[in-house]
Design a protein around this nucleic acid. Sequence first.
DNA 1: TTTAGCACTCTTCCTTTTTGATTGCTAAAC
DNA 2: GTTTAGCAATCAAAAAGGAAGAGTGCTAAA
Lengths: 334, 334
Amino acid sequence: MLEERKKKILQAIVDEYINTAEPVSSGVIEKKYRLGCSSATIRNEMVELEKTGYLEKPHTSSGRVPSAKGYRFYVDELIKEDDISLQEIKYIQSKLETKVNEIEELTKIATSTLSEVTHYTSVSIGPKANFQNIEEVKFVLLGTRMLMAVILTDTGIVKETIIKFDEDITEEQVNTLNIIFNNKLKGKPLAEIDKPIEEYIFSEMNYSLNVIKPIMEQLDRVINEDSKLYLEGANKSFELPEFKSLEVAKNFINLIDTQEVMRDLLNTGFAKDINVYIGDENDNDQLKDFSIITFKHRYQNKDLGTIGIIGPKRMDYSKVISVMKYISKKLNGK
Amino acid sequence: MLEERKKKILQAIVDEYINTAEPVSSGVIEKKYRLGCSSATIRNEMVELEKTGYLEKPHTSSGRVPSAKGYRFYVDELIKEDDISLQEIKYIQSKLETKVNEIEELTKIATSTLSEVTHYTSVSIGPKANFQNIEEVKFVLLGTRMLMAVILTDTGIVKETIIKFDEDITEEQVNTLNIIFNNKLKGKPLAEIDKPIEEYIFSEMNYSLNVIKPIMEQLDRVINEDSKLYLEGANKSFELPEFKSLEVAKNFINLIDTQEVMRDLLNTGFAKDINVYIGDENDNDQLKDFSIITFKHRYQNKDLGTIGIIGPKRMDYSKVISVMKYISKKLNGK
DNA sequence: TTTAGCACTCTTCCTTTTTGATTGCTAAAC
DNA sequence: GTTTAGCAATCAAAAAGGAAGAGTGCTAAA
């Protein structure tokens, strides 16, 4: 759909702009990228690329800047594969080798490593709890009126919650709870901890609602609660030239501070391994100046959360995508 | 040490500056604050206040701005008591009434309420684990090679950690662990989970080091790990005029992103109920543009963490301190 | 189709001017 | 002795003007 030379020129412009953050002129392309034609020819092509929407001009007599469409084409067609150095590979390897006992911890390490290698702000979120299946539920008595419920899911993720009561709980009651929950729920999706089990305990056992209610409330909460958003390297973004604009900086802070938009983005659309959102492609005005790239943290095809990068539209897509692919592969094989 | 009129003028200047963020002129003081003397007299007094270090001038022909010393005097001597409205009180009450099962949750609610009422960025941190005493330790088997250790402390705080093994663990072993740890450690400070108990289990029981080592490692980790820093309303700071300066904004982001300085500040010096750090009083250059106000989250005199506000030196000290006093009182009585 | 050449455009940077707020000082008034 | 009116001096901030330079679009020739 785009002639070879136009592709080359577009690629040169995007590469150059990603490096310098300055509008790119025909002269620079001619001298630096040696495409075998003069600046005038490049200018002519640039006019076409602008007409078809791949490039933009900040003002009449300035160089060109990639549009969202330009970035999109770049990401889909022109990206450099394996834009990752041996050093970076080694660094990532060493980081991911850290022994951890909790998956959340591993996600954090991957997230911070991603930020360190790419120099962008990274963000991650745990998997939606209610898609997971229950492996085991255990209740532990703490003191006399406090219970901890521990849920182990088939993804290896452990959720726990504390439940407080107005009356004393006996060890015996706890034992029965453990038996009931495990018999009834093993292998079922988390979402099934719900009314049926509540009614069962109430009718079949001799438990008062004072005991059942708090338990069900807390289990419900822990299953449905949003998993924690983890952010790393927010300060890195502030070193970038686009953050000289107070407007942009403020939008960024609002974005990462309110978290809702982040959550939405991290929880949607995983058609591909790596998902790239450029600017306000998914028309949210808050995102117009930013791009977001995400991937699923998977282990043996089980969903363990989402990890992403948020940065300016002028992002080093090749580098970020390459690093993500590598980390993703490593995590899955771990 | 400062004549009555000088105090009044200083107070007027600080109040005015806190409101407007503009250097305060003698004319404004004369007209708005009606101290019964002319602007010329106020000017004379301002010269004195500048000489003695309470005021500063951005440049020769500008109005005055409070110095760190000026703010300090204001905070120590001139602050408005109970600068909190009925509405605010009601709002705080309603927020703190939320039923929670975990102390950490309550701290979070208090922290976000503080930010909402004061419109500044707030921050909190849990208590240092190793000062707390052990009430109960429980081990729960999850699957066959995973244990969860749950520690209940005398502050009511519950810590838990997951331990993974290379060999199967039996229910019996878990039971013995529970008995040993509770007999040996009940009432002792968390810091005592250490070598002695490790040796005891190793020599007295027939447990292999493969079992003991991972347990001790994880307990050690959970006891010594830094408690989580919780931040709320970072975007609120960015609405303030001082954050128009990129320099200031960047310093702020670095400060809250690296967390170390925050941790230090939240963990030190609690001579008073409310602690005010103005600018670089505790000579850390990173803090030169900011003030930090903290208080201990206490319940029945047990330390449950620290909650604070971070904002520009030009902070509404009266409001923040009043709100903090109220929240602190409420938390302690809860 | 490509390219050299050139006028035109528009930002950026620098300098100069103007404006206006505020001070410090002096001398008179209280 | 203290307070105040009056006023020149100061300086930042805003406005205005001008020069430089980078980059384009267009034209006409290659």
